[in-house]
Design a protein around this nucleic acid. Structure first.
Length: 117
DNA sequence: CCACTGACGCGAC
DNA sequence: CGTCGCGCCAGTG
């Protein structure tokens, strides 16, 4: 299984209404320092089945989103992030500014994202 | 093969 | 609190 697919699989295990950090995903796939690559992979994701908007930064800020809303007229980079925030709010996650309370919404353990346990 | 490049992390200040 | 700087590593060309 390629790393990309492992990343997608882990992301699909994040429950609705919860989030995981990029580092959580890298730990879950057994590459604890590949967090930067996790972002690169998700950046190119176009699969709506993969809830990549639930992956946020370790400091609680929402982070980027490389899939701007085409139907709403071209939004720039910040627009991608705005849409990510919108999706998260829609799942009931409270966001102050662009910051999330990770103690409240982060998945309990990266282990819960591992495919075979 | 080599040199970038990021939807990042974290300590320093 | 915030911002800066350096480290990170699998893809891509």
């Amino acid at each position: 299984m390629s790393l990309s697919n492992a990343i997608y699989a882990a992301v699909r295990r994040i429950p609705r209404g919860r989030v995981a950090t990029y580092a959580d995903i890298s730990r879950a796939i057994g590459h604890p320092r590949a967090w930067r690559h996790v972002g690169n992979v998700l950046n190119r994701n176009r699969d709506p089945q993969t809830p990549c908007h639930r992956v946020v930064r370790s400091d609680g800020t929402v982070g980027g989103f490389g899939f701007p809303d085409l139907s709403a007229g071209n939004l720039a980079k910040a627009g991608g992030t705005a849409r990510k925030i919108q999706k998260l709010r829609h799942e009931g996650i409270r966001i102050i500014g662009s910051r999330i309370d990770l103690r409240r919404y982060r998945v309990a353990s990266p282990r819960s994202l591992v495919i075979s346990h």
